Simulated assay, not measured.
Amino acid sequence: MKDIQISIREDLKQKPDQDHLEFGQHFTDHMFLFDYNSEQGWHDPRIVPYGPIVLEPAAMVLHYGQAVFEGMKAFNTNNGNVLLFRPQKNMERLNQSNRRLEIPEIDEEFILHAIQTLINVDKEWIPSGKGTSLYIRPFIIATEPCLGVRAAHNYQLLVILSPVGAYYSEGLEPVKINVESSYSRAVRGGLGTAKAAGNYAASIKAQTEAKEAGYSQVLWLDALERKYVEEVGSMNIFFKINGTVITPELNGSILAGVTRDSIIELLTNWGITVEERRISMDEIYQAHKDHTLEEVFGTGTAAVISPVGELFWDDRQIIINDGCIGELSQQLYDTITGIQTGMVPDTLQWTVQV
């Protein structure tokens, strides 16, 4: 395993107030860098003071969008340990994204080691308040200076850390979501299965319009028929209808969420029927009219579980569970966050100690 060079900054930054952490607004003292070129492969792993990076104006990421990323979290436990939640799944997905965008694959074990090393360097930044964590953002960009539509020959992998509170300002209060019918985010065969920067750029217009209308997020429909549910902008989504939990199947345009996978495994272990299949807004609206739409919730690393209190679709307002968090949503949130923070026994061996 390669040696990681570590340069500790002398002028440590002031840490933010743990009681007023906004998501993704504060960054720790250090970051990890790792370079790639076609002659040397991945080389020169190092931890350096957090700061600006230098790119040439012709860097290919700026023109052709070769950029992928991941989202992970580290958690303080009451006994002083630091835990990661299923980090190998994030490393596997990062390589899946790399393959789709023709970016050289990484050594998953080494990058996880590098992340753990960086966390140890900046472990004083890990918040300990309820609902807080240290968000981990690994990302890879094409750095070769060239104006030509092809895979780059040079890349840089970076990891930055950010102490965070709740992803949504509502916290665990149910959010309102607009069902998008005008714009499309991804299509089968496109980039929907990759955690690529371009996917998120494609969602910004609809997200802005939804926020202006008073909604926290956008629920995307399939790009062909605009009929079947796919995912929320930053989350996978689940519907509890008449006792059965339904989530859209991974059809080639939906990101395979780590939290999504964890929820399915938990529900199955609890004896709750889970269906991964196509589900249309017509079916959801009919369940609403039949009073069998019991709960709706999103899942993702950032929010963990985000209960949905309202869907707005085709000028129709769908209120779920009187706008209150459902019993299952609460149970899932308590279980996942309990495992992440060491408060609930990790019988599924999902956590990794830093």
Rank of each mutant, 00 (worst) to 15 (best):
V274G: 07
R278C: 01
K240N: 11
N242S: 10
N251Q: 13
V258D: 00
E276P: 06
V274A: 05
D282V: 14
A256I: 08
T273W: 05
N269A: 15
I241R: 02
S262V: 15
S262H: 03
I254P: 10
N251E: 07
G257H: 07
E265A: 13
I241N: 03
I263W: 00
N242H: 09
I264C: 08
L250E: 02
D261F: 11
T268S: 12
V274K: 05
N242G: 06
I272G: 07
M281R: 07
L255E: 11
V258A: 04
N251R: 14
N242A: 15
I246Y: 05
W270C: 03
T268C: 02
W270F: 05
I264Q: 04
V274E: 06
R278F: 03
I254A: 10
I263Q: 03
F239A: 03
E276A: 07
E275N: 11
D261N: 15
E265W: 00
P248C: 08
N269L: 14
T247K: 06
V258C: 02
G271W: 11
R260H: 04
T247N: 09
I264L: 10
S280A: 06
E265K: 14
D261G: 11
G252M: 12
G257Q: 13
T268W: 00
N251L: 09
V245P: 02
L250H: 09
G257A: 09
L255C: 06
S280M: 08
K240V: 12
S280N: 04
S280T: 12
I272V: 14
I241C: 05
T273N: 14
P248A: 12
G252I: 09
A256V: 09
D282K: 11
D282S: 12
E249T: 14
E265F: 00
L267T: 07
N269T: 13
I272H: 06
R277K: 15
N242I: 12
A256R: 15
T247E: 03
G243N: 03
A256T: 12
M281N: 02
S253Y: 00
R260E: 07
S262L: 10
V274W: 02
L266P: 00
T244N: 09
L250G: 04
T247F: 02
M281D: 00
G252K: 09
M281Y: 00
R277S: 08
